[in-house]
Amino acid sequence: MNATDRTPAATLRSALAADPARPLLTFYDDATGERVELSVATFDNWVAKTANYLQSDLAAEPGDTASLLLPAHWLTAVWLLACSSVGVVADVAGDPAGADLVVTGPDELERARTCKGERVALSLRPLGGRFPQPPQGFADYAAEVPGHGDRFTALAPVDPDEPALRVAGRELTGAQVVQEARADAGRLGLTAGSRLLSTRPYDSWEGLSAGLLAPLTTGGSVVLVRHAEHLDAEALERRRTDERVTHSAS
C-alpha cells in the first residue's frame, strides 16, 4: 500500500490501483449460512455507490456524524469506507439521538428512531437483499443504493486530521486510523498477501482493525466471521484451511 495514504478511503484507492482483482473481504454468517466474497474492485464499487448515496440523497457533508448501529458484516465495512470517502464521522454503536444520520440493522430499529436526521435501515439479508416490508420512517438501503454511480468524487476535500471514527469511547482522525491500523498489522505480522480470519465483533477498535483496517493497509485480506459460536473447533479449523488463512484474531 502507499505509505502516504492518510485516510482509510485513500488506502482503498491504493489497493484498487495495485490489484483490483485480489480478494479483500470474505464474509461468513454462520447463523444463516451466508458466504460473500468481495474483491477489491467489487468492494470499491459498493463503497462508491454508498458514498454517492451518502453525499447526494442524504446530503451528508464532512464533519457530519453517522451513528452506525450495525454488527460485524461486509456491509458495515462498506459503510465505514463510504463515511471516510465523504468525510463523515463513523460513530460505531454511537448514540443516534445526537447524530446527523443513523444507519441501522433490523435489531436496532427502535433505538435508531431517536435520530432526528436521516434514517437508513439495512436488512442484512443474504446478498444485500431488501426488507420484505421497509421499516416505517427508514429508507431501505438495498432499494436506494443500486441506482448510484460506481465512481465517487467528493464535493469537498476530506481532511485526514479531522475526526473520522468513534468507537468504544475513542475518537480518531483519518490519519490516526491508518497509522494505528498499520501498527496493528505489524504486531499481527501481516504483510502483502496475508489472509486474516477474524471472529471479533465490530464494537471495538480491535475488532474493526482485525476485521478490516489492518489487512487493508498491508495489501492483505480478511475472512470476517459472524456468529462463530455456531462452529466447533474442527469446523473453524476447516474454515481456516479452506480459506487459506495465514493469521487469526478472536
Rank of each mutant, 00 (worst) to 15 (best):
Arg13His: 12
Ser14Ala: 14
Ala15Tyr: 08
Ala18Ser: 13
Asp19Gly: 14
Asp19Val: 13
Pro20Ser: 12
Ala21Pro: 06
Arg22Val: 13
Leu25Ile: 11
Leu25Asn: 07
Phe27Met: 04
Tyr28Thr: 14
Asp29Leu: 04
Ala31Ser: 14
Thr32Asp: 14
Glu34His: 13
Glu34Gly: 14
Glu34Gln: 14
Arg35Cys: 07
Val36Glu: 08
Val36Cys: 11
Leu38Gly: 12
Leu38Arg: 11
Ala41Phe: 11
Thr42Arg: 14
Asn45Cys: 14
Trp46Tyr: 12
Ala48Leu: 05
Ala48His: 12
Lys49Leu: 06
Thr50Ile: 02
Thr50Leu: 02
Asn52Phe: 12
Gln55His: 07
Gln55Leu: 05
Leu58Gln: 09
Ala59Pro: 05
Ala59Gln: 07
Ala59Ser: 09
Glu61Phe: 02
Pro62Lys: 09
Gly63Phe: 02
Gly63Tyr: 03
Gly63Pro: 03
Thr65Leu: 01
Ala66Trp: 01
Leu68Val: 05
Leu68Tyr: 03
Leu69Gln: 10
Leu70Gly: 08
Pro71Val: 13
Ala72Thr: 03
His73Gly: 13
Trp74Phe: 15
Leu75Thr: 05
Leu75Asn: 06
Ala77Gln: 02
Ala77Thr: 09
Val78Glu: 00
Trp79Asn: 08
Leu81Ala: 01
Ala82Thr: 00
Ser85His: 11
Ser85Pro: 04
Gly87Arg: 02
Gly87His: 02
Ala90Asn: 06
Ala90Glu: 06
Asp91Val: 04
Asp91Arg: 01
Asp91Thr: 07
Ala93Arg: 00
Ala93Asp: 10
Gly94Cys: 03
Pro96Thr: 09
Ala97Ile: 03
Gly98Asp: 06
Gly98Thr: 03
Ala99Glu: 00
Asp100Arg: 01
Asp100Pro: 09
Val102Thr: 10
Val103His: 05
Val103Ala: 12
Val103Asn: 03
Pro106Ile: 06
Asp107Ile: 08
Asp107Lys: 02
Leu109His: 13
Leu109Thr: 15
Ala112Leu: 02
Arg113Asn: 12
Lys116Val: 15
Gly117His: 02
Gly117Arg: 00
Arg119Asn: 10
Arg119Thr: 07
